[in-house]
Design a protein around this nucleic acid. Structure first.
Lengths: 209, 209
DNA sequence: GTCTATAACCTGATAGAC
DNA sequence: GTCTATCAGGTTATAGAC
């Protein structure tokens, strides 16, 4: 149970490798042997650091959620900027993250489906209410009470999340059907982003629904 | 190789069970034992009918694609109806399919990512060009050449697919955060559908982009 | 802390009796 | 066609030497 003070030497390398492989192939199709091989260490070392594959995934998943979810809150609450400016920033930030990790959206949805408990744990560790409540409060103010009490929060989430991740979720298909090169994909994305922002702004400022 | 004339007695039951389990848990996390157990037959029988797990999945995947993709084309080409009527029908049909199989969108995206070859085979078997070309031709006419030659086809696909599947991809999360009961989910969906139709009509009739 | 060796199990697949 | 029995290989996990 207890570890000596120099016991975490290989942990960053393991986490980094595991993160990459889990995101690419998912929990089920990534074996401990794969991770050990790509990290250049022996299998039992993985168990020394994390005991089981499940615990290792737990650590990796938490770290991934931590690395991208909190950024949302910081941007939304810059009240000196206009709503569409802030939405533009959010879309920009997440597009960047997904450009660097195109399989992240699939990973998230796949692993939450496999075991929703991981998400709950990650959000608990994040003390999510400290982020979410102020964020929702800010939105509530700017949207007005009557719209807020309608169905608009799910609509906002679905429009944001659906439009934002669909190019990445379907990237494999898109690269066969629509785009021939990576640069064509990025080109499309640079035009897609303002379109997404426009849909979100329309939703928030009450033009639709 | 050759089979006697009564050799397909158990095949429908096997396919039905495999279809359900593959959609629910995915290829990697569904074992031949699972399928045999739930179908109430012995493991070797599966191999007698399909030889390998991969071939069995191939058959199931093809049947699934066949069961929902062709309906798109038939609706789009009812030229006597208005564009928004036809889009409404499409959204309605696919919402229905996904309500009955909430894990289908995740299944599709997960398995295409695992091996894009299955999609190519399924589309080949469907003689996709017989469906797709007339469909695209009809859209091209109604949208006008200059819009068609822009980026609008991917935009159309992303808006359609992204908005349509996002409630189902995130259903697990949604049922924890937004909705308490299945009927609340359906209630949201009944308001979500016309919203999706409105976005698509706006895109096709040139209001945006 | 990191290695070798191995346990215990489950997987897909096949052979052969009936 | 469907069964029992079995195989070879890969999986997670651990024991114990160093």
């Amino acid at each position: 149970m207890e570890r000596g003070r120099e016991s975490r030497g290989l942990e960053p390398k393991i986490i980094k490798t595991a993160r990459r492989l889990f995101i690419e192939k998912g929990f089920a199709e990534t074996s401990m042997s794969d991770i050990a091989l790509e990290a250049g260490i022996n299998r039992p070392v993985l168990h020394y650091y994390f005991r089981t594959k499940e615990r290792m995934f737990h650590a990796v998943f938490g770290q991934i959620v931590l690395s991208f979810l909190p950024r949302l809150s910081g941007i939304i609450q810059q009240k000196e900027k206009s709503l569409s400016e802030r939405i533009g920033e959010i879309v920009e930030v997440y597009s960047q993250i997904f450009m660097e990790n195109p399989n992240l959206p699939l990973f998230i949805v796949r692993e939450i489906h496999r075991d929703p408990g991981y998400l709950l744990d990650a959000l608990r560790g994040l003390q999510i209410e400290c982020y979410l409540q102020p964020l929702l409060g800010t939105l509530r103010e700017e949207m007005g009470e009557e719209r807020w009490n309608g169905i608009s929060l799910p609509f906002l989430f679905y429009t944001f999340y659906g439009l934002l991740v669909v190019p990445f979720l379907s990237k494999g298909m898109g690269m066969q059907v629509f785009f021939k090169t990576e640069s064509e994909f990025r080109n499309m994305l640079s035009r897609w982003k303002p379109y997404v922002v426009r849909q979100l702004v329309a939703l928030l400022s009450g033009g639709h629904q």
